[in-house]
Design a protein around this nucleic acid. Structure first.
Lengths: 241, 241
DNA sequence: AGCGCGGTTTGATCAAAGTCAAGGCGGGAA
DNA sequence: TTCCCGCCTTGACTTTGATCAAACCGCGCT
């Protein structure tokens, strides 16, 4: 609803950047050395400010990208302004939708985001040449489908406090993968308003449930963004996992 | 929660069935004649009664299938019994999850269902041999992901009456594809209880909203299952599409 | 016909989350 | 420092949908 924002900072890093290469390996794997070099030649590293739109009304999907750092939110909006975040993407997720451009989703940087992007044509040619790449893509898509369906259960059947606990648990475990108990501390990548749009709640309800979790000793709120979870298991219980 | 049900009727149709072949073309496409014959040789047609579990606790995912007719519901359940339908699959969708078995979803026949199933090994070998098959799979997965995300908006941000209207609109347009206005009549593939689990509501609320839509002249209810929509556009408005 | 049963509708009441309205807190600019 | 602005929290009240309870309806059975 704001004025179109397009201030993507292209930091003009030389085309062949080693950091990107590492990410390409991580996400795409199975590319030949030749392909990797050619991908790097055509890739550009970009830093995107929090809040800037990556894909949507103002920004065409003429490129694909790997997320190097930061969090991207995928949002669906209704005509009257109600909106729902339908997915969060973290590094090293692949960004941009193959073989389909619209689907009514916009992608915005939730935090400051670094991506490594390359032109649509490059990646699509590589997909044709390398079945393994398509296989990787299928795997990421299946992962996203699983996540979407998990979240449908949260949206449809959990109470407000379970929802907020579920969100915190999601972030906590994403910050420290392969951790499912003990103590974690992390920075929330979303504002209260984003959290509300992710959970299908209002900001007031999110706030109230956060203070309730704090008063019950399940979490500590250092400042609005920084949260500490002394016992992940207890949080998981609150989320009804 | 009921006793395990396993009464799948294998109707012992000879392995090579023409009806199935048609479906294989529809879903998988791009198979060579040889592959198609071999697929048909190993495929079995099955009729499954409404309510029977296809994939889940009691039934292993040792096979894949094409849906020939009927509706399959994908359900996620919480420990305390709350459940959410996370997807509906119609003919000619592909059923069964490649490269992953669990993910906590069960698939049940919502109506009487006819499927054409073949062993896991067969389809996985073919996928390795035929990149185009994997491409088709990716396309169906992307379609399911889109649907899931559409539904997340419905679950998170719509009111009860918008939800019910959205559901009816979904079924109406699925029964008659490429129709988006005028009059339609159809049979609901789900009970009120299933509809409630799909919409994240209770059966009472679903019922009340249905009668409201009826009283407002948006729908006619012939009997519990049969519904007529005189004007699809009006239904779409009620759904806030 | 009368009975019973599952699924559905309807009504009365209640609780959870939304809305409206203040106020607080923190960080940046003057 | 002080002010300001955005974001967050808190409180009072309202609304939506859940819960509890009863009746209804179509249908197969005896």
């Amino acid at each position: 609803m704001d004025a179109p924002r397009k201030d993507i900072h292209n930091s003009d890093i030389p085309a062949l950047c080693r950091a990107c290469e590492a990410r390409h390996r991580g996400v795409c794997g199975a590319l030949s050395a030749d392909q990797l070099v050619s991908l790097n030649k055509q890739s550009t590293r970009k830093r995107i400010d929090s809040g800037v739109e990556l894909i949507g009304e103002t920004q065409q999907t003429d490129s694909y990208a790997n997320i190097i750092s930061g969090v991207v939110k995928l949002t669906k909006m209704m005509a009257d302004g109600r909106q729902q975040i339908v997915g969060l993407q973290f590094a090293p997720d692949f960004l941009g939708r193959p073989f389909r451009s619209d689907s009514g989703i916009t992608a915005d940087a939730a935090t400051e985001v670094n991506i490594c992007s390359f032109p649509r044509t490059t990646i699509e040619r590589m997909i044709r040449d390398t079945p393994m790449l398509e296989h990787k893509l299928l795997e990421q898509t299946l992962k996203e489908l699983d996540e979407a369906r998990d979240w449908m259960l949260t949206l449809g059947r959990k109470t407000a406090s379970e929802k907020v606990a579920s969100f915190l648990y999601l972030i906590a475990t994403h910050v420290n993968p392969e951790m499912d108990e003990g103590s974690v501390s992390f920075e929330l990548p979303l504002t209260r308003s984003d959290i509300a749009d992710f959970l299908g709640l209002t900001i007031e309800t999110v706030s109230r449930q956060m203070t309730k979790l704090r008063k019950d000793g399940v979490i500590l709120i250092r400042n609005n963004r920084k949260v500490e979870v002394p016992d992940l298991t207890r949080l998981a219980e609150r989320a009804s996992h």
